[in-house]
Design a protein around this nucleic acid. Structure first.
Lengths: 256, 256
DNA sequence: CGAGGGTTTGAAGTGCATCAAATAGTGTGG
DNA sequence: CCACACTATTTGATGCACTTCAAACCCTCG
């Protein structure tokens, strides 16, 4: 189940390049990146791997090189609340700097992934000594905050088919390319997981998806979607939202 | 409608004391507080006053001295999404430093309030030049982030009466005092507004509150609640939550 | 006292959840 | 390459929670 690969110094420059491509670390100097990477571990994880569970002692934070990771919490009787599902370039566990060194949620790999883990201590050092980096981190947290605000909004203003439409719009590769011409996209993970990500039951997801199909004319084959035009999707989903479509900065690939 | 009172230097030390009592500014030096307070405005606002609307140019951020402020967004057809309802010691508008100098939401005073407004430029200066303050701000944003995570969770795991119970628990003055003995609390604002804060209709709120009364034995007279013991409330509401009751740091007065 | 908003109650409808079962899809060992 | 087991997904039937629309009630305040 667990395949761990600690990467030696030869390849750490690759991880360095990767790290610089992550928004949070985009303005770091080479020296800072080297510091952050000291003692890093790059793990190839299979589906189902638990990276940590809520309450674990937190010494490291994580950056996703590729794949998907589910962030969630559980009630005593096992009901899960999905907080977020993250992918390439996202970080998690870094806010444990401000907890009492424990993780406030659990993290599970849901698709084969490469995950970089780094020392929280070194991150804290960088925050405390480089105001510019602290600003980057604040900016990144502010972005996340707006996303969460939107999430809450969607749950109360959008119905199930609209939420799915909005989810699909955020999977679009690039708004400019997508505009006007037909496009094919693949659902990034289990339909059941998408359902819980969107706060609904798998059965509801299935039915809502076919309602969406009827309403917007999209084509569904398994986990492949064919979209002739995104306009009907926008009309259908974005009418129940306070942001207008190019919903900038909302984790929307088509809007970054 | 608008009663503005710019306070002169004689009273600014009062505002200084107040500012230091706010978590975010707790570790600021006198000098820093003075800097932040330069050009501050203390406004006495009546119910209904709009402090700013989404999209407005943002030059100031706000700190609530007392009262209540609603933070929300609207769809084109007027449906409101309440993002948060804030009170004494809370700040808002400060994340506009990281937007393109616009507010991403609207802010409306919903109870008579005293609101302090301060210059965003000076805040940014402080963040950029004092790593310790940047850390405070990061910590404050991390706290807010956890609260929003919890909010999303509550919406999907708790039903209407449970959400109300949880809301009431968070109004409790102090967990230690509350434990065991009867206590009286007042709802802080309109029931209709509480309803939308909790993501439900006024009618649903009314019915759910009486269900809560039946389930936990609390007493309701208008906006006054008499609670013999908080234990039934905890049993009733917290079973559908991933946090155990002394839900630390979740904006819960009884748990701070 | 009367107007107007906030709150409650009633009746009916809707959306989603739940339970149950069928079907499709995937990976396994033979 | 096929049969089997197992999981993911779909479909059907039913129930419940919340919404919606409508009307009554209550409270406050001029």
């Amino acid at each position: 189940m667990q395949q761990v690969k600690a990467i030696d110094n030869h390849t750490s420059s690759n991880s360095g390049d990767f790290l610089k491509s992550v928004q949070l670390f985009g303005e770091c100097t080479d020296k800072e990146v080297d510091l952050l990477l000291e003692g890093h571990i790059l793990e190839r994880c299979t589906k189902g791997k638990m990276l940590f569970v809520s309450g674990d002692n937190a010494e490291r934070y994580y950056v996703i090189k590729n794949g998907w990771v589910k962030i969630f919490r559980e009630t005593l009787d096992g009901a899960q609340a999905i907080i977020d599902i993250l992918t390439e370039g996202h970080t998690f566990g870094e806010t444990s700097i401000f907890e009492e060194n424990t993780y406030p949620y659990s993290a599970e790999v849901v698709e084969p992934s490469e995950i970089l883990s780094l020392s929280l201590r070194k991150l804290r050092y960088l925050i405390e000594n480089n105001p510019k980096f602290a600003l980057s981190m604040l900016s990144s947290m502010a972005r996340y905050r707006r996303q969460q605000d939107t999430e809450i909004e969607h749950r109360s203003l959008q119905n199930a088919p609209q939420r799915i439409g909005c989810f699909i719009l955020r999977l679009m590769p690039n708004q400019n390319e997508a505009k006007g011409r037909p496009i094919t996209i693949h659902l990034p993970y289990d339909k059941t997981l998408i359902a819980s990500r969107l706060g609904m039951q798998p059965e509801t997801f299935s039915r809502a998806l076919s309602k969406l199909k009827d309403a917007t004319g999209i084509n569904i084959k398994g986990s492949t979607l064919e979209i002739q035009s995104i306009d009907p999707l926008i009309d259908f989903s974005c009418s129940a939202c306070t942001s207008e479509f190019p919903c900038k900065d909302l984790g929307c690939k088509s809007c970054v």
